[in-house]
Structure formats: C-alpha cells, structure tokens
Write a protein that binds this DNA or RNA. Structure first.
Lengths: 229, 229
DNA sequence: AAGTGGTCTAGACCACATT
DNA sequence: ATGTGGTCTAGACCACTTA
C-alpha cells in the first residue's frame, strides 16, 4: 500500500470478491468512503474511477456506484511491430518483399475501406522471417488516394508497416482476429501444408475519415497471441 | 472540448501526430504546460497520464516526458459471456452438456495449471448454440482441489462459465488466441468439415495462486473477434 | 543536488440522472 | 429538487532519476 489510492483499490477489490459488497449492490458514496479511509474525496475518486475503468464496478451520477453483476472481462493486447517482436526474442529478423503491384481496388476492398471509384491502391505482399524460418505473411493494400507518396517508397528494404508508422499517423483502427486455412500461396510461403489452420490478424486504419491501409497478417502454424490480465 | 483535460489530450495528440513534437522528442514539463493552457498542473497531469496509458508518450521522473518513437499499438478486447453475446444479437441461445467426467489430470494440464500429484479435475465438454446453430464448443477442466463443490454442481442446465462467474472470483488470468484444425469431434459438434480452420481462445484462471480452471473455446467456422481502437 | 513526474488535500462548482 | 459522481484548483510534499 505504497500509495493511498492503490491501497484503496485493493481494499475495495477485496470487499467485492469476498462478497462484503455483493454484485448489484450499492457501494458507499465517495464522501463516506473518504471519511472511512481518512483521505480526500479525490483519492477515493481516483481509486473508484480506475476500478470502473477495469470493469469491476459501474458508476452513475446520482444513482451511485454499484458492483457489476458480471464483472467485465477484458484483456489488452499489444500489437507488436513484427521486427521488434522477433528481435525481442533474440532471434534474427529478415524481411522480403514478395510482390508489388498498383491496381484498381477489388470491390470487397472498395467496400471495406469506403474508397472512391477512381482511387488506386498499392498491393504488397511480404514475408517476415525469424531465424531464417517463415514467421509472418503480410498482404497489404495502401490507399494511394490518401497516401500518394507510397507509390515512390522502396518497400524492398523496409517493410510497409514500419514505413507507415514513420510516415502517417492514424486516428482509428479496426482489428480482428480469426483463423484461416492455408491456400497454395500461404502454404508455400509459410512452409506448411495446404489446409493447415493459421492464425490471422486483419487491421484497417483510418486518418481523418480517410482509409489509409488494410492488412492481413497470417502467422506461422501454431502461433498464439497471449496476454495476462 | 467540454472538459479541460480532454481538450488538453486532444491538443497534445494533435501536436504529436502533426509533428510539432516529434517522436523521441521531449515534451514541455507539466508546469510549463499548465501555464500555457492556463490550468492547474493536476489537469495537465491527468491528460498526460492518460496519454501515457494509451501508449502515445513515455514519462519518467526527472527525465521528463517524451513522444514514443513507435507509438504503442494496443487493443482491448472484451471477453463476453457466450450467452450474452448471442442474446445481444437478438438470437436464441441454447446450451448443452456433452460430456462430464472426473479424472486425474493429464500431464500437460498438471504442468499448465501447476496441479498437485493427487488433485482431481472435473472435465466438461459443452456446446453453445445460436438460433439452433452450433456456435461455440467448450472444453473445460476445473481443479477440484481448489473448488470441490464443482463436483456437486449441475452443469446440465447452466454452463460452467456462468456457474464459475457466480461462484468464484479470480485474480489472474492468461488468455490466448490461436487457430486450430477441426478434428473428428469438433467437426461433428460444430457442423463443419474435418480439417477446417477454427478460431480458438484458451483461458487459464487463478485465485490466490491456485489454479481454478482451464478452458478451450472453439468457435464456429469463420468466427472473428473484432475491436476498434 | 536538483528537476520532473506522482500523489495527496481541502475546497469548490458543475453535470447529470433520479426522485 | 437533490444527491452523486466529474472535474478543477492551488498548493504541498514526496519519489525517482539523472546530472
């Protein structure tokens, strides 16, 4: 209990999990708690605000604070830059550009990114290796309407992800995880059998309402994305 | 800009993405910013603290605040209770217990949950349906050494997840996402072909250093887990 | 040794949702 | 109308880290 508000959080959390304050029940208000714990209301507020943020309690003005009936379970995943992820494990990272093409976006991509009729996209396919072994297959589309200078970038040395991070900010992103079956291309690039189940992440990013890029990251067989909470 | 600290966050975020404060660069200290924005230092502190939490900046005492060279990309996923997830989409939820068995834990489970030699586990297999269609296959192990009353619970009506939520708190959890290939059992239960790529979540939960449960949730073909950030 | 962020306080006013 | 949380302030002291 080095700091007051942390100690408060722990105490409150304990009271909740031990059932002193049951699910759905009203928790004493901030003023009362400040008196009980002999601290300022702001300190109670900080503790309670963070617990609400973590999904343990629910707060409403006038109605007060209640213990969530079903505590929100949420986990935070850090989306790593693949090079750093690999290097962090002490493995050697290698990158290769597989294909590069400027094209009219296919309909599904136009719909997904809400592109204009005449927008062109840069279509890139890349491989990321760890210690010489296939690690991640990257299939990316960059909206040249929003980012014309991507046309002149050299993606044979630096991956599109790292280039984009340095070049453009983004305001909104949608990410999803799913499983996909290895097709001919994937199986060859990732060195697995056709039909193998592979973990895939997709991400669309936007800046000021304009689509920047859509990417599919398909990982080596058996890849897991893990976190604690 | 209804509230000062939110306005501050926006302003600072803008200065960062527009390059006024470049990556790696030192940001003015809290006192100076408070003067510039004509507000209390505590207000600046709140704004900066949240931006640090979001991964945009890095703060160290004495060293000051810097713009992160590679902004941390992180996404938060809410792990839903399957019944609520289905009902939230207006679909009818149905649950079924497929198998129930008390057993000695296999070695891999004993290792994963750090079980004692003579701990027994309750092994459950369940199905969750949405609108009559297979939605999720659940394979669960509950540590009876930590939770003996699970032996007497009736899992034919209420799923183990909902029972556990009501019965036990947990302090730590590890969750991971991956892809798995449908074996005979999975393909029959989920109504897909053998070898289909399926999205899988695994979760181990702990309470006061003791393992409570380990579960594998395998989703219907094509399932995606999505979030925005 | 000194500068920066981290936390806390006491008090104030306000916004919101319930009553 | 009223009670509760949301925010803000001015000032203070402390903890950590670098110089």
């Amino acid at each position: 209990m080095r700091t007051a508000f942390r100690g408060l959080k722990e105490e409150i959390r304990t009271r909740i999990v031990e059932g002193v304050w049951a699910p759905g029940e009203l928790v004493p208000n901030e003023v009362d708690l400040a008196v009980e714990f002999k601290c300022a209301r702001a300190t109670v507020n900080r503790a309670m605000r963070e617990l609400a943020e973590e999904g343990l309690i629910e707060r409403k003005r006038k109605a007060g604070t209640r213990v969530r009936t079903a505590p929100l379970r949420q986990a935070r995943f850090t989306i790593p830059v693949v090079r750093k992820e690999i290097e962090a494990r002490g493995a050697e990272y290698r990158y290769a550009l597989v294909r590069r093409e400027i094209m009219q976006p296919p309909d599904w991509l136009r719909a997904r990114l809400n592109l204009a009729q005449d927008d062109e996209v840069l279509h890139l396919t890349c491989m990321h290796y760890a210690e010489g072994n296939p690690y991640q297959f990257e299939i990316r589309w960059i909206n040249l309407g929003a980012l014309p200078k991507a046309k002149d970038a050299d993606f044979s040395k630096v991956g599109p992800n790292e280039w984009l991070i340095a070049e453009v900010p983004f305001s909104d992103a949608e990410i999803s995880f799913s499983a996909t079956s290895a097709d001919e291309d994937l199986s060859q690039q990732l060195g697995c059998a056709r039909g193998d189940a592979l973990f895939m992440a997709e991400r669309s990013t936007w800046w000021q309402g304009q689509a920047i890029t859509y990417v599919r990251l398909v990982f080596q067989r058996g890849h897991r994305m893990t976190t604690r909470y």
